[in-house]
Design a binder for these strands. Sequence first.
DNA 1: CACTTGACCTGTCCGC
DNA 2: TGCGGACAGGTCAAGT
Length: 291
Amino acid sequence: MPELPEVETVRRGLERLIIGKTIARVTSDTPKSFPNDPIEVRSFLVGARCVAIRRRAKLLMIDWSSQYTLVVHLKMTGQLVYRGDENFGAGHPNDSLIGELPDRSTRVELTFSDGAHLYFNDQRKFGWMKLYPTSEVEAIDFLTRVGPEPLEDIFTPEAFVARIRRRNNTTVKAAILDQTVLAGVGNIYADESLWGAKIHPATRVREITDAQLGCLLGQIKYVMNLSIEAGGSTDRNYVNAEGKRGSYIDFARVFRREGQPCPRHPEVMIEKIRVAGRGTHICPACQVVAA
DNA sequence: CACTTGACCTGTCCGC
DNA sequence: TGCGGACAGGTCAAGT
C-alpha cells in the first residue's frame, strides 16, 4: 500500500529517471484510470518535457514544460514503473515483482522520444492519474484539505497535538489515518508508530496526554524516515520506479507479524485485531487501552 | 457536525 | 479440483 515513504521513493526514482525526457506517445486502457479527454491529453503532453517531480501527502505531481501537471494517486495497488536502457536487466531478479511490460494491469503507457517508457500499472483500478494545468493543482480539493507533511521540521509536537485534538472523540488510529490531521500515514505506519509509542490503537484521542501524542509524532517521523531509507515497504505489490521491492517490511515490529514475538516482550505474541475498520497489529503487553 | 460504514476493484487464500 | 466467500486498504460518499 503506497503510503508516504513509498510515494516518496517513487518520486526520487522518477526524478533520477525521467527529468528532461520528452513524451512521444500516450495510451490508456480505461477512463477510470485516466479520466481526461484523450485528445486533450495528447495535445498537452506529446512534445512536452518533464521538468519536475513533486510529492504532497500520497500524491505525485509530474510537471511538464507545457505548463501541465500529471497528478497521480497510487491508492492500494498502483505502480509507476520506468523501463529504459538505463535499468534494463539491472539488479537481482528477485528484486523485481514484475516482468514484461505492458502487462494485464497496465492502465497507462507513456512513451518517450528516446524509446523509454513509463507504465502506470494498477491491478485494482482504485488509483488514477489526472492532467491539470500546473497553476490549478494547488486548488485540488484534496490538497486544500490535507494536513501538514509529518517529516517537515516545522511540524512540531505542539502543532500535531493542536490538530489531532479536533478528533478527540475517535480512536487514535482513525485520527492518524485521517489525512486532514496529517499527511501520508496509512495502515502500515499507523500500526508501527502506535507500537513505538506504546499506545493501543483503539484508545480515544481524548484519553491520551499531550506528552504521549508528542511521542507518537516522534514515532511517525522515525518509522517514515527509516522506511524511506529502506526504499519503502513491499507488503503485497508495491514497487519503486525501477520495478523493485522496498525492504522496510523486514524491519517492521508488528505489521503482518501476528503470532510472532513482540520485540519488547519475547514471551508475548503479536495479535491482529480490527480498529477503525482496518486490520490492526498490536502487542497486548505494550499497548494497553487507556482507562 | 462528528463519526462510522460501505463502495470502489481484483487477486489470493481458506474451507468445504 | 472447483467454488464461494472473506480479505487486503486509500479515499470519498452515504448513513447514523
